[in-house]
Design a protein around this nucleic acid. Sequence first.
DNA 1: GAGGAGATGTTTGTAGGTGAGTATAAGTAT
DNA 2: ATACTTATACTCACCTACAAACATCTCCTC
Lengths: 145, 145
Amino acid sequence: MFVGEYKYNLEEKGRLFIPVEFRRELAPDAQNTFVATQGQDECIAVYPLNIWKEVIEKELLNYPQDTPEQRWLVRHFTKPAKYLKIDSQGRINIPQRLSEYAKLNKEVMIVGALRRIELWHPDNYISGETEFTPSKPGIFPNLKL
Amino acid sequence: MFVGEYKYNLEEKGRLFIPVEFRRELAPDAQNTFVATQGQDECIAVYPLNIWKEVIEKELLNYPQDTPEQRWLVRHFTKPAKYLKIDSQGRINIPQRLSEYAKLNKEVMIVGALRRIELWHPDNYISGETEFTPSKPGIFPNLKL
DNA sequence: GAGGAGATGTTTGTAGGTGAGTATAAGTAT
DNA sequence: ATACTTATACTCACCTACAAACATCTCCTC
């Protein structure tokens, strides 16, 4: 389960270091493979391969394919996704399409979000944080933490 | 599982490069063979051989063949299909009938859709995308991604 | 049999992805 | 506190994938 928050820099060619704390859990086997895709917010969502497969197989693979709407729903989730690898130094190469979607340029917030990691432009991250973080206690009434 | 989205150009003679990411999964063995046919939407659908066989066997092979309607339904699926090969450079030769069906001329969107690959004219692809992709969150209430 | 058109195969160039090396900073242990 | 180890940052060099042009082959026509 991914937790924590880090700020790293993209290098010129679009590669990003993954914090050591995330590497093993993100790509446990020798393949070093995981999946990156568009997040539901303006960020990049990064999944370990087993979590990705679990979601796809449970939610999408048996989804009916009778209407154009149903077929486009599948494409909606598959088209932005990409299989990526962590290289020997712990870096990943972020596809241009995804870094454009999340408006990444240099600084990147790397955030643990339980089953996935999220990559944010710092400005978007902070503005979302200030907009949606409750200022008063008791605003999450159903969470016993 | 095919994911991702690429834009490549048809060369004059009607050949198309397949992205490296798709090649091995599309034609895993030395035969380099796969199947292309008409998609349910206005695109070309491309299947690895084993997936194609699986679909045919599950859906068509045991379909009753007692009436002309039933026999024509089978023909409807079999007649546009064609076995194709990836050449030594990773290109495929798209049959004219299929590229006419999908209205391909120069630019082609190559899209991963789980068990198949789809080839789209960019205009059709974008118009379908804008028509059927939800703009608001929460419209897929049961998909947790 | 010769010429031509279409199909198939090969070559070459370029840009971007991939890998390696070193330097600096941070963290850990003695 | 100091030495040692590990992690991040930056730079450079190479190699592969894609693109486009070029060459070869086959079949059809005249």
